[in-house]
Write a protein that binds this DNA or RNA. Structure first.
Lengths: 242, 242
DNA sequence: GTTAAAACTGAACGATCGTTTATAGCCACC
DNA sequence: GGTGGCTATAAACGATCGTTCAGTTTTAAC
């Protein structure tokens, strides 16, 4: 591959790195890294986001982080570890957001689904670049790391399918897919929601919260929720035209 | 990257190449290539599918196709062209399937949506490996090729959003998303459906046609279709239990 | 049987890859 | 003012990368 093929991203690489640095400096689960290591990780994140992990060299990362390739190996044992730490952090963050949201919601399947989807979408939209790196690049993890992340992704799916199964049993939801309904519809919801990070524009006209509400409404429809309160209405947060 | 990180795929590389070869030999829009070139393209497809395009070298492709690296350049001008031909073919195929299906459906938005979604899902499930290569690797196209493919993908989205807009106007659909409803819900449907190629197992218990029916039913729910005939029922093709 | 085009080989080009190593500055601490 | 322990550097390792090219074999037409 002679050159990365991605569309030229808006904004500069330096701006992306600065954004990742600010995010990472505030994350408790990255506190064990030290400032230099976090700077390297932020540079890697920005380059992975722009060019993809396989097209990003150690020398690219080191240059963007302001040190030599050799120095990078004082903070990380390999380039693969950089990708692993990034993807793992992304999953840690999303898991925490979901756990917090669903945990503080009511016990009904309806409330749990609303909380789950809202948190899941917002979790993607608050850090769209990190979400994109995780979503695209986890396929390029080393074998063991890949297996570990697949397990974690399946756990997220199973958490949602559990909500759907409970709702189907209680008559709150009418699932499509028969015996496989809970899993199949969980996959539908997750696939639909996770892709938002790829096209969402934080400076666009639709706020992230509005979009999350719309996806909640869409998920409720998908699973055949029997009744929806105004938060799931068809206008879903957009002001009426005119 | 020391090694590709993908999960070991079931079946052998040779089997994947043979499958791609059989598919490509039957495709009219690849008839200009000659048997040797199609063999190279099939080898590239199988390797891109297994390891990702950036992790696949020209030497890997040549070895899998049974010739030397130099010989490959008699059939294709560069490695990038291989990826471009593959992605373009995938889009040609899907466009044809959709055009045929929607064209022979009724004029109502409801019938058009059913035809579109059914063809779109089946198009992914009939060639799941090709669909995955297109979906994952088009990001790594060279700049101009990437821009061209993005335009084509947007055209598919616009075709669907046009159906949704017509349905909303006629009162057949009740869209979520206000002013952006048609586009937003088209994206929801496409994202949900295109991911099926990643997990579908042709030897599994659910036939592709059944799955397509379920996604049609899901899409109808998503866009708030006012009434659904039995083909869109909640059991959607699965036999009742017991 | 001659000829011209097409297909292919094997070797090589310069560049870049991930990683290692030997060495030097730096800083806190006794 | 030594003395470790970090952190960083510059240089180098062998390997592999995409691509080119001169020359050889195969193929097909007349």
């Amino acid at each position: 591959m002679t050159a990365p093929g991605r569309m030229p991203s808006p904004g500069s690489l330096a701006a992306d790195i600065a954004r990742f640095r600010a995010d990472f400096d505030a994350e408790p689960d990255l506190a064990d890294l030290g400032t230099a290591a976090r700077r390297v990780l932020a540079a890697a994140a920005a380059l992975f986001y722009r060019n993809g992990a396989p097209a990003t060299s150690v020398r690219d990362i080191a240059r963007a982080a302001g040190l030599t390739p050799g120095a990078m190996y004082h903070h990380f044992s390999s380039r693969d570890e950089l990708l692993y730490r990034l993807v793992r952090h992304g999953h840690d963050r999303l898991d925490a957001v979901i756990r917090h949201s669903v945990g503080s919601a009511g016990n009904s399947p309806d409330a749990a689904l609303r909380a789950f989807v809202h948190a899941y979408v917002l979790g993607h939209l608050e850090r769209p670049q990190l979400a994109q790196v995780v979503r695209r690049e986890y396929l390029h993890l080393a074998h063991d790391d890949y297996a570990e992340i697949v397990v974690r992704r399946r756990a997220v799916r199973d958490r949602l399918s559990g909500i759907l199964r409970a709702g189907a049993r209680s008559g709150t939801f009418a699932l499509i897919g028969g015996r496989h309904g809970p899993t199949r519809q969980a996959v539908m919801v997750l696939d639909m929601c996770s892709r938002t990070s790829e096209w969402f524009d934080p400076s666009g006209s639709t706020p992230a919260g509005t979009l999350a509400d719309q996806y909640v409404a869409a998920a409720l429809r998908l699973v055949g929720a029997v009744q929806q309160d105004p938060a799931g209405d068809v206008s879903a947060g957009d002001r009426p035209p005119g």
